[in-house]
Design a protein around this nucleic acid. Structure first.
Length: 830
RNA sequence: GCCGAGAUGGCGGAAUCGGUAGACGCGUGGGUCUCAAAAACCCAUGAGCCAAAACUCGUGAGGGUUCGAGUCCCUCUCUCGGCACCA
């Protein structure tokens, strides 16, 4: 056979890239789609076009989807596989602050780079439906969506404590604060009271939970969403404040221990605290309350967290009465109680809640035991390890004595409700979504204010409400749009003198939470998306997305989907039917790739040296898509060698020209080929690309050996089948091999051919190797004709005739014989 | 602390309705070719014992169920991800 056929990957890949561009292969899918064909919508979480360009992680997830796309096209489906850009965002704006280059220009250049790189990797996107969120044709509809929410009362202005990043000079959503720091720049986030725009995502909280039953997502992802929504059932208990006309309601999930309640704690922001500070309620402790409040408000989120479990607090001078015991419980304030959760007030049961115990110890409050400890311990609780939270029988608890905790919870809730002292409630951790951003590079919020400062929606005929360009980017703490003269003039001209625009822009997550709806009619100027196409192609069949988007993007997207469904625009409840996450590609040092560590692999370099086919195939071969895995440059070369061998092998077949289907070893190769077709056909839909590639390699190993040692030459149809099953992985080289074997000059791609079928008969082995165990240990392997595998008696007698088995059975009594047809034969002796 | 995922040769990983552990690739050792080297190709490659065959051990640790456990059950350790003074 011909050795070392030159594998000139750059020439091959650039050539076919050019041909595909010219012939518009797989472009404008929906306009040309056959309505009778089954359709498949594959979606990649669109990327922020950063100045760094494409990285190997992008290549991984894009290739994974591209393989699915090509495979399904070859199965006759209409595959919708669009691409776009999450183009608004901070990096371009920060770059503008530093250099003065307008974000629009930075973004345009970055997109151009990405587009070029993605095409070079051979991702078969439909570029006709490309979108960018920063394009007025797109954000017009983002603004339209805002107005629809506004009309329904789901976009509202609220004043409250917000997360403020002093470095980005903007507010952040709760979801964007990570460990008390800004997720973008790691600056410490502070709390600020501001008037901002919110979306009422909490209206959908129940459905955001129940809808998860409809989708095929990783279990862990669903749990994480549930966790974030944080549904909890408990009871609100209302206590009378002693001596004055006031009541305080606490939320608790554990009313069972209420006989052990000895104090109340209020969040610093609690209404009752306000009345004290305002002097409406007289107490000798007013000064210390004020002092504590002042201190608490100054703390940043981070400082609060760093305090850890150390309890601070102040006594208000008031007492609440526990109806169960008539005990007067001192009312304290402390910042460990959060105003946003429950009622902003808790009842302290120090004997059976770790936190309450710590608080009681810090301020010398009485601790009562109401649950029997392990080994029947009923002594007073004096140390932390006696604080028993979850299990045990009630004691000192009146009618609950002797009852297990779980049962006591329900009994007590019933009792409190019966008495009118409490009411069962459900609470959620999920807050409304704060969408105002004091930044430039985003979609302007389509709101204008009249001279009295009252907000009005921008009229729909004024959409897109364009982002002004005469803006000073330098962050001042005020929105950059404040500096635009054009923006101000526009508003006064359209709405009247004294009117002013809303200067804030929308969180970029607003842009990215509905893009998958826009793709199907990306150029439509009359509506946000085409109803017919939405009905036909949505919801998304398969979504590939990084694990970092689990909480924010998915939650917001699901909210929009449900909202638009309620308006009648959509006929489905969930936007993404199936979803998986790609793992991270780590540097060769097994660490996350970063410029500072100098371990970044640039896909351009790999393509230059080995080609896009190698890059794709290597990344798919590294391991399961879902797991993190380190880059290994010599393994890349291994994949390159494989491709080179394929090229040589196929070339050799064609140069030889004479097939040898009558060769005795031909059947071995054909069997392997059919086994490989079967394996690859099963592995691709399951996205087990690493094992599919391993199978392709095995096939080549067998084929090559037969070709070299035995001069076996496969018929052209079988060579073609191999090329076809490899095509989704290595689109360039397979196109080259396919075209070399064709006679006609009219272009038709290997990627448009029909996927080869495998013949189970041809794939079947005629001899199998059957392990034989004696007492659980494999002692011999029998060669059994496949046709005999089902005949137990025949197999057993063959085993008993085996020399090694005889030796092991010698002098022993076989008490049991187990035969799993075709799998294993096991003798058990005494 | 709580929730989730995971731990398999020198490395990445195969194999989980319980049935030959280590497919495939990398690396390593030896060889062919060459004046030499590179490339390419061939052979070997879990550990122990060993001339070889055979045998013994072996999937984070310890127990258990089973004829048989990487896979199932219990306990534990470590790593990664998420949440966290959430009442």
């Amino acid at each position: 056979m011909a050795k070392n056929t030159q594998y000139d990957h750059n020439t091959i890949e650039e050539h076919w890239h050019g041909v595909w561009e010219e012939t518009q292969l797989f472009q404008d899918t929906l306009a040309t789609a056959d309505p009778n064909k089954e359709s498949l919508y594959l979606l990649f979480a669109f990327a922020y076009p950063s100045g760094q360009g494409l990285h190997v992680g992008h290549v991984e997830s894009k290739t994974a989807l591209d393989i699915l796309a090509r495979f399904n096209r070859m199965h006759g489906k209409t595959v919708f596989f669009p691409v776009g850009w999450d183009a608004f965002g901070l990096p371009a704006e920060n770059y503008a602050v530093k250099t003065g280059v307008h974000p629009a220009e930075t973004t345009r250049n970055a997109i151009d780079t990405f587009r070029r790189q993605i095409k070079r990797v051979g991702i078969s996107y439909d570029w006709k439906s490309e979108i960018a969120t920063s394009h007025p044709g797109y954000y017009k509809w983002t603004q339209w969506l805002f107005l629809e929410l506004y009309k329904k009362g789901l976009a509202y202005q609220g004043t409250g404590q917000v997360n403020w990043c002093p470095s980005c000079q903007t507010v952040l959503a709760n979801e964007q604060v990570v460990d008390g720091k800004c997720e973008r720049c790691d600056s410490e986030v502070i709390q600020k009271e501001m008037k901002q725009w919110y979306f009422k995502i909490t209206d959908y909280k129940d459905e955001l939970i129940s809808g998860l039953d409809q989708v095929d997502w990783p279990k862990a992802t669903k749990l994480q969403q549930l966790n974030w929504i944080g549904k909890k059932t408990g009871i609100n208990i209302t206590y009378q404040v002693d001596d004055i006309d006031a009541k305080i309601t606490v939320f608790t999930t554990r009313p069972d221990t209420n006989y052990g309640a000895t104090f109340l704690v209020l969040a610093p922001e609690h209404e009752f605290v306000k009345t004290i500070v305002d002097g409406k309620l007289e107490t000798p402790q007013v000064e210390q309350v004020r002092e504590y409040l002042a201190k608490a408000q100054k703390k940043t989120e981070l400082e609060r967290q760093q305090e850890g479990r150390n309890k601070t607090g102040a006594f208000t001078g008031f007492y609440a009465v526990n109806q169960l015991t008539n005990r007067k419980m001192p009312i304290w304030i402390s910042d460990f109680v959060l105003s946003g959760f429950g009622t902003g007030a808790v009842v302290g049961v120090p004997g059976h809640d770790l936190r309450d115990f710590e608080f009681a110890k810090a301020f010398d409050i009485e601790v009562l035991r109401v649950v029997v400890g392990p080994d029947g311990d009923t002594s007073p609780i004096t140390s932390v390890d006696q604080v028993q939270e979850d299990v045990g029988k009630m004691i000192n608890s009146g009618f609950l004595d002797g009852v297990e905790i779980a049962e006591a919870i329900e009994s007590m809730m019933d009792y409190l409700e019966e008495k009118g002292w409490g009411k069962r409630v459900t609470t959620f951790k999920l807050r409304d979504w704060l969408i105002s951003r004091q930044r430039y590079w985003g979609a302007p919020i389509p709101i204008v204010y009249d001279p009295e400062g009252k907000p009005h929606p921008v009229k729909e005929e004024h959409l897109p409400w364009t982002l002004p360009t005469d803006v000073d980017f330098k962050p001042t703490g005020e929105s950059p749009l404040t500096s635009s003269k054009e923006f101000q003039d526009r508003v006064e001209k359209l709405y009247g003198p004294g009117w002013r625009p809303e200067y804030d822009t929308m969180d970029t997550f607003v842009d990215s939470s509905w893009y998958y709806l826009r793709y199907v009619s990306a150029r439509d100027e009359s509506q946000f998306s085409d109803p017919e196409r939405l009905a036909k192609y949505l919801p998304v069949d398969f979504y590939m997305i990084g694990p970092e988007h689990i909480v924010l993007h998915l939650l917001y997207s699901r909210f929009f989907t449900k909202f638009l469904r309620d308006l009648g625009y959509l006929k489905f409840d969930e936007p993404f039917l199936a979803m998986r996450h790609q793992g991270m590609i780590l540097g060769p040092d097994n660490k996350k790739m970063s410029k500072s560590k100098g371990n970044v692999i640039n896909p351009d370099d790999i393509i230059q040296k080995f080609g896009a086919d190698t890059l794709r195939m290597y990344e798919m071969f590294m391991g399961p898509i879902e797991s993190d895995k380190p880059w290994d440059i010599s393994a890349v070369a291994g994949v390159y060698r494989f491709l080179q061998r394929v090229l040589s092998l196929v070339e050799a077949v064609r140069l030889t020209g004479s097939e040898t289907p009558d060769h005795p070893d031909y059947l071995t190769v054909r069997r392997k080929l059919h086994q490989t077709i079967e394996k690859v056909s099963k592995d691709i839909p399951a996205r087990k690309y690493n094992t599919a590639i391993a199978a392709l390699m095995e096939c080549v190993n067998v084929w090559e050996k037969a070709s070299r040692d035995k001069a076996v030459v496969l018929p052209e149809s079988e060579v073609l089948a191999f090329i076809q099953i490899m095509a989704p992985f290595a689109p360039f080289m397979t196109e080259e091999l396919y075209q070399r074997g064709r006679e006609t000059s009219e272009f038709s791609s290997v990627h448009q051919t029909e996927w080869p079928s495998f013949d189970p008969e041809m794939a079947a082995e005629d001899m199998i190797e059957l392990p034989v165990q004696v007492d659980g240990k494999v002692r011999a392997k029998l060669r059994v004709a496949a046709t005999d595998a089902a005949e137990e008696a025949k197999v057993i007698s063959q085993a008993q005739a085996n020399e090694v088995i005889t030796k092991w059975l010698d002098g022993k009594t076989v008490v049991k014989t187990i035969y799993i047809p075709g799998k294993i034969l096991s003798f058990v002796t005494k």
